[in-house]
C-alpha cells in the first residue's frame, strides 16, 4: 500500500513539474513571446476566456504572480486549457481529444510490438550466444537505434512510396475518406499505418534487445539455471521459465525511461508522415506559435506516459513481489 501511495505521489510531482514548466517558461523568456500571440487573439475572444489566457501566459494580468499560478493550476486541473489559435475558435481540449486516438493507436501498438519482439530477440540471442542469430540481429538493431527516427521515415517513404509506389505517402487515411467503423476504412487506416509503424518498431527495438540480452547473460550464469540443466529440463523451458522470466524484470522497470524516448521519436515520425496525432499537431502548434495548444499537448503526452508507466508498474508487482516488499 505504501508502495502504491509513493508511486502516486511521484506521478503527481511529475505532472506538477510539467505544469510549472508550462507556466514559467513564457515568463522567463526575454520579451515574453506569448504577448505577440495574444495580440492575434485581440477582438476574437470574449472577456472571461481572454482573462484566463492572460493569466496562463502572464500577459498584462493584474493579479500577483502567485495568484496567477494558482489560477492556472486550477484551470489545468479541470481541463480548461484555453482556445487554440490554429483551430480557432475550438477549445484546445477538443482539438487534443481528436488527435489522441491516432497516437495511442500508432505508438501504443508499435511500442508493445517492439517490446515483445526485442525481448524475444534478446533472450534468444543470449541463449544462442556467439551463434549466427546472435552475431547478426542484435548488432544490426543496436546500430539502427542510433539512426534518427525521422530519417528512417524519410528513407522508407523514398523507397516504398515514391520509388515502388506500394504504400501511401502519409496521413492516416485516404484524403476525403469518411471516418467510420467499416472494414474498408479500417483496412485503409492499417495500410497508412504500416510505414510509420515499422519505422518506430525498427528504431526502438534495439534498446530492448540490448538490455534483455545483457540481463539474460547474467541470469544464465546463476546457480538455479545450472540446477535446471542438471535436472534435465528441456532447453526451451529453461530459457523461458527459468532465465527469461527473471531477466525480463529489469527490462520492465526500464520501460518507463524508454517510453519517453519512443514518444520523442514518434513525434518526428508523425511529422514526416503528416500523421494526425498529438506529435504532428504539437509541431504544427509550434510553427503557428499556438502556445495554448502546444502546452496542452506537452501535458497530455506527459500524462499518457505516466499512465503507461503506472500500468507497467502494476505488471511488475504481479511478476515480482519483491518490488512491493522492498519499499
Amino acid at each position: 500500500m505504501r508502495y502504491v501511495l509513493r508511486r502516486l505521489g511521484f506521478f503527481v510531482a511529475t505532472l506538477w513539474t510539467a505544469m510549472t514548466v508550462n507556466f514559467f517558461l513564457p515568463r522567463l523568456m526575454p520579451g515574453n513571446p506569448a504577448i505577440a500571440m495574444m495580440a492575434r487573439f485581440h477582438g476574437k475572444l470574449n472577456g472571461q476566456a481572454l482573462r484566463a489566457m492572460e493569466v496562463a501566459f502572464g500577459v498584462n494580468a493584474q493579479e500577483s504572480l502567485l495568484a496567477q499560478y494558482f489560477a492556472y493550476l486550477r484551470n489545468s486541473a479541470v481541463g480548461h486549457f484555453g482556445t487554440s489559435l490554429t483551430f480557432f475558435p475550438q477549445p484546445v481540449s477538443g482539438v487534443v481529444l481528436g488527435a489522441l486516438p491516432w497516437t495511442l493507436g500508432l505508438v501504443g501498438v508499435t511500442t508493445v510490438i517492439a517490446f515483445f519482439l526485442g525481448t524475444l530477440i534478446g533472450m534468444v540471442g543470449a541463449w544462442e550466444r556467439g551463434g549466427w542469430f546472435d552475431s547478426i540481429l542484435p548488432p544490426v538493431f543496436i546500430v539502427l537505434s542510433a539512426f534518427p527516427y525521422f530519417w528512417i521515415a524519410l528513407v522508407s517513404i523514398l523507397i516504398f512510396s515514391i520509388s515502388l509506389g506500394w504504400l501511401p505517402l502519409g496521413f492516416a487515411y485516404t484524403n476525403g475518406a469518411r471516418i467510420s467503423l467499416s472494414w474498408p476504412f479500417i483496412g485503409d487506416v492499417l495500410v497508412h499505418a504500416i510505414l510509420p509503424g515499422v519505422t518506430i518498431v525498427i528504431t526502438s527495438i534495439g534498446g530492448w534487445i540490448l538490455t534483455m540480452r545483457n540481463n539474460m547473460i547474467m541470469t544464465l550464469a546463476e546457480d538455479y539455471v545450472r540446477m535446471a540443466r542438471a535436472k534435465g529440463l528441456s532447453p526451451l523451458r529453461i530459457m523461458i521459465d527459468y532465465a527469461g522470466r527473471n531477466a525480463i524484470l529489469p527490462n520492465l522497470s526500464g520501460f518507463g525511461m524508454s517510453l519517453g524516448f519512443v514518444v520523442s521519436g514518434a513525434i518526428l515520425v508523425e511529422y514526416v508522415f503528416s500523421y494526425p496525432g498529438v506529435g504532428y499537431m504539437m509541431l504544427q502548434a509550434v510553427l503557428n506559435e499556438d502556445y495554448p495548444l502546444m502546452q496542452t499537448l506537452f501535458l497530455i503526452i506527459t500524462l499518457a506516459v505516466l499512465l503507461a508507466i503506472l500500468a507497467v508498474d502494476a505488471i511488475t508487482v504481479l511478476l515480482d513481489p519483491r518490488t512491493a516488499a522492498a519499499s
Binding site: 514518444v263 502546452q295 503526452i301
Partner: peptide, 17 residues
C-alpha cells in the same frame, strides 16, 4: 521526474519559446 517527463516534447516547448 526529469527521467519520466518525455524529453523531446519538453525540448520542443523550450525551443519554441
Amino acid at each position: 521526474v526529469f527521467l519520466i517527463i518525455p524529453a523531446f516534447p519538453l525540448v520542443v516547448v523550450i525551443a519554441a519559446y
